[in-house]
Amino acid sequence: MRKPLLIAVGILLNTSAALAQQPVQPLPKVGGCPLGYYSSGGYCVPSSGGNSRGAIEKSGTGCPLGFYSSGNYCLSSPSNEREAIQKSGKGCPLGWYSSGGYCVKSR
């Protein structure tokens, strides 16, 4: 009885961690595309090799905690399991914390 329960808990933990990562999706093109993306029309599209990291457009000069700069974008670092959005106004939504010009999802 304990083994199925432990497996179910492990699956839930892995699923929630994966959902918390920055989404890997096309981004509006701002200058050159970030590492792991290619230009297609007015977008930067993740490469098909599966090596692309989640990215957001850079706001100001820095990137949020867990991200690094790649041109006009911030890419999620390999060990980062958090999602970030650009901050709108002075605060962040419930469950998110401020990191420079961004809001980062709490674990």
Results as ranks from 00 to 15, higher is better:
residue 96 W to G: 01
residue 11 I to Q: 07
residue 100 G to M: 02
residue 30 V to Y: 07
residue 54 G to L: 08
residue 42 G to D: 15
residue 47 S to F: 03
residue 20 A to F: 01
residue 102 Y to L: 03
residue 23 P to I: 02
residue 42 G to F: 12
residue 33 C to Y: 02
residue 30 V to R: 02
residue 22 Q to I: 05
residue 99 S to F: 14
residue 64 P to D: 00
residue 11 I to K: 02
residue 60 G to C: 14
residue 28 P to Y: 02
residue 70 S to P: 05
residue 8 A to R: 00
residue 1 M to V: 11
residue 15 T to M: 08
residue 105 K to S: 04
residue 98 S to R: 08
residue 39 S to P: 09
residue 21 Q to S: 13
residue 76 S to Q: 03
residue 7 I to Q: 09
residue 18 A to R: 03
residue 98 S to Q: 07
residue 30 V to M: 07
residue 105 K to H: 02
residue 101 G to K: 08
residue 38 Y to M: 05
residue 18 A to V: 11
residue 77 S to Q: 00
residue 29 K to I: 14
residue 68 Y to V: 13
residue 7 I to F: 14
residue 13 L to N: 08
residue 99 S to R: 05
residue 25 Q to T: 13
residue 8 A to L: 06
residue 49 G to S: 15
residue 96 W to Q: 00
residue 49 G to Q: 12
residue 7 I to N: 11
residue 64 P to H: 11
residue 92 C to Q: 05
residue 83 E to V: 01
residue 80 N to T: 14
residue 24 V to F: 03
residue 6 L to Q: 06
residue 52 S to T: 08
residue 3 K to W: 12
residue 85 I to M: 13
residue 42 G to L: 15
residue 31 G to N: 08
residue 65 L to S: 14
residue 104 V to Q: 01
residue 32 G to N: 12
residue 52 S to P: 01
residue 11 I to S: 12
residue 81 E to C: 10
residue 103 C to E: 07
residue 101 G to Y: 13
residue 35 L to K: 08
residue 49 G to A: 14
residue 53 R to W: 00
residue 38 Y to E: 12
residue 71 G to E: 02
residue 83 E to G: 10
residue 81 E to V: 11
residue 76 S to D: 04
residue 24 V to K: 01
residue 60 G to M: 05
residue 51 N to M: 13
residue 85 I to E: 06
residue 53 R to T: 03
residue 13 L to Q: 10
residue 15 T to V: 15
residue 60 G to W: 09
residue 40 S to Y: 13
residue 101 G to C: 09
residue 36 G to S: 06
residue 4 P to H: 04
residue 36 G to C: 05
residue 3 K to N: 15
residue 62 G to K: 06
residue 3 K to E: 15
residue 102 Y to E: 00
residue 1 M to F: 14
residue 63 C to K: 02
residue 54 G to I: 04
